[in-house]
Design a binder for these strands. Structure first.
Lengths: 134, 134
DNA sequence: ATATGACCCTGTATACGCTACAGGGTCATA
DNA sequence: TATGACCCTGTAGCGTATACAGGGTCATAT
């Protein structure tokens, strides 16, 4: 058979993805269903590998699967305006910024709480006290 | 009946928690099972309210339910050393710090990617290009 | 007495993004 | 022909809730 045909295991190794995750992406419409061999094995082509690499890169950058689905659809329409792509990426960046500022506020509170702990007995613990209702 | 007895709805309103969430905490061992009325309604006492307030405060500070279970157990042993409490809080703070630095690294990458976008057509889009395999 | 509507009950399904089985089939190599 | 690496499907689990279906209870209004 064609030497460019890949099994799911090859795809997994080449993209650092678990086999189950690849099947999960297929079931969730991110990766098109490949054809099958006589023995019912998935037979991938180079395009599948490219698409999976794209997905993994986007996941590493924290995009949701929904966002990735949209990015994939856009990247398949190469003549379209890039503004929609920019919108998705910018929205994601805004979400990341929000998370960072939420976590920094959280850390400030944790710092205050932990710094007060004199590490005596629980009855006098400022951490427990901070959590307890008045 | 006793005027200090509370329904689940009262507990919910007083702590800003959804009724389903309170039942969820009970099923997961964070809130002890209250006694029941004749009509099989949960009948809470002030202690339940205090405990739920504690849980919500800790959740607001980002502690996991496992960590909260441990904090609750510790706060019930008031003569014990406070070091275990400090350990849980410090571990949580470290996790928060890790998340912040991960997200800041992510944001740097997103910034770089988005700043390159000239917003022409998808074929020339730097965002798509960044995501695509070489 | 009854009707309404607010509240409560249990149990199950859903969300996200996987991961981990169980129980089987296929394929290459010794 | 036997082994072991690989593949298949289907289901359940993680954490932290939220939502809903289909029913029961309770207080108030008429």
């Amino acid at each position: 058979m064609n030497s460019s045909i890949l099994t799911i295991g090859h795809l997994a190794r080449q993209t650092g993805t678990k086999v189950e995750t690849i099947r999960f992406y297929e079931k969730n419409g991110l990766l098109p269903e490949p054809s099958r061999t006589e023995g019912n094995y998935r037979a991938y082509e180079p395009d599948h590998l490219n698409r999976l690499s794209f997905i993994r890169r986007a996941r590493d950058l924290g995009f949701s699967l929904d966002q990735i689905r949209a990015l994939l659809a856009l990247s398949d329409n190469r003549g379209q305006s890039c503004a929609a792509v920019d919108a998705i990426a910018s929205k994601h960046r805004a979400e990341v910024e929000k998370k960072i500022s939420d976590l920094m506020a959280l850390k400030t509170e944790l710092d205050r709480m932990i710094d007060q702990c004199g590490c005596g007995v629980v009855a006098d613990c400022r951490i427990i006290e901070t959590l307890s209702p008045k």
